[in-house]
Measured scan of single mutants.
Amino acid sequence: MTTFKLIINGKTLKGEITIEAVDAAEAEKIFKQYANDNGIDGEWTYDDATKTFTVTE
């Protein structure tokens, strides 16, 4: 398992979430479901060097 981080730069929600996932594809699926569940819709980026996803509304 690898640790992945999501940085949320939303209009109403900001913060960071860290999860353990098998790979970046699994982490992205989990993070996008979390964002969808919380009404966050924005532009996604991923930095493989730091294993960090960012979503900006």
Rank of each mutant, 00 (worst) to 15 (best):
V55T: 08
I8N: 03
L6Q: 00
Y34L: 04
D23I: 09
D41P: 12
T50W: 07
T54I: 12
D37N: 15
A21N: 14
Y34I: 10
F4P: 00
F31H: 01
T2R: 11
F4R: 00
A49C: 02
V22S: 12
T18H: 05
W44Q: 01
E28V: 14
W44Y: 04
I19L: 06
T52I: 12
Q33A: 12
F31N: 00
D41I: 10
I8K: 01
G15N: 11
L13S: 07
A27L: 00
D23Q: 06
E57T: 13
D48K: 03
I40N: 12
E16N: 15
T3W: 11
E43N: 12
G39N: 11
E28M: 13
V22I: 13
A27I: 02
N36G: 15
N36C: 03
T3I: 13
E43W: 06
I7E: 06
E26A: 15
T18Y: 12
D37T: 14
E26S: 13
T18K: 06
D41V: 14
E20Q: 06
G39V: 10
I17F: 10
T56M: 08
F31G: 15
K32I: 04
T12R: 02
K32H: 11
K29Q: 07
E28S: 09
K29H: 13
T56A: 05
G10T: 09
E20N: 05
A25E: 07
T3S: 09
I7L: 05
I30Y: 10
F31P: 00
T3D: 12
G42D: 02
T50N: 08
G39S: 08
I40G: 01
V55H: 02
E28N: 10
I8F: 15
N36A: 11
I17M: 02
M1F: 06
L6D: 00
I7N: 13
E28Y: 12
N36Q: 12
V55D: 00
K11G: 07
N9H: 14
L6C: 02
G15V: 04
G15T: 08
D41H: 15
A49W: 04
T45R: 10
D41M: 05
F4D: 00
D37A: 14
T54G: 06
N36V: 15
K29A: 05
T50A: 15
V55K: 00
Y34D: 01
F31A: 10
T18N: 10
A24E: 05
E16I: 11
G10C: 02
I8G: 03
A49R: 03
N36R: 11
G42R: 01
K5M: 03
I30P: 02
D47F: 05
E57G: 09
G10E: 01
D37F: 14
F31W: 13
I17W: 02
E20C: 03
M1S: 13
A35Q: 06
G42P: 02
E20P: 03
G15F: 12
A49V: 09
V55C: 01
N9L: 15
I8P: 01
M1L: 10
G39A: 08
Y46N: 01
Y34E: 03
A25G: 08
G15K: 15
K11S: 03
E26F: 10
E43P: 08
K32E: 15
D48P: 07
D23P: 01
V22A: 14
A27V: 07
N36K: 13
L13F: 13
D47P: 01
K11A: 04
L13K: 06
I19G: 13
T56P: 01
K5S: 07
I17S: 08
Y46F: 09
E26G: 13
D41Q: 09
A27E: 00
K14R: 04
K11M: 05
E20M: 05
G39W: 07
W44E: 00
L6P: 00
L13H: 10
K11D: 10
I19K: 12
K51S: 09
K11I: 04
I8W: 10
Y46R: 07
K51G: 04
D41E: 14
I19S: 04
G39Y: 12
T56L: 14
T18E: 15
T3F: 15
T18P: 03
K11N: 12
E43Q: 07
E57N: 14
A49T: 08
E26K: 10
D23A: 10
T45A: 03
A25V: 12
A24T: 11
K32A: 05
A27G: 12
K11L: 08
E28I: 13
D37H: 09
A35D: 01
K14L: 14
T3N: 09
K29G: 04
D47H: 08
D37G: 15
D41G: 11
T52K: 07
L13A: 14
A25M: 14
A24S: 12
K14D: 05
N9W: 11
M1K: 05
N36S: 06
L13E: 05
G39P: 06
T45D: 04
V22F: 10
G42A: 07
I30R: 09
T45G: 06
E43K: 09
A24V: 14
A35Y: 01
I19W: 10
D47V: 08
Y46A: 01
L13G: 09
T52P: 00
I19D: 07
T45I: 07
T2E: 13
Y46S: 03
N38Y: 13
G39R: 12
L13P: 02
E43M: 10
D37K: 15
F4G: 00
W44L: 08
E26V: 06
T56G: 04
T54Y: 12
D48G: 10
A24M: 07
G39D: 03
A21Y: 02
T50D: 03
A35W: 03
D41T: 12
A27H: 00
G42C: 01
T50G: 09
L13M: 12
D48A: 12
K29V: 13
N36M: 14
T50I: 05
Y34H: 11
F4L: 01
E57L: 11
A27D: 00
T3M: 12
W44N: 00
T50Y: 09
A24K: 12
V22Q: 13
D23H: 05
A35C: 02
A35G: 07
F53D: 00
W44K: 00
T18C: 02
T2W: 13
A27C: 01
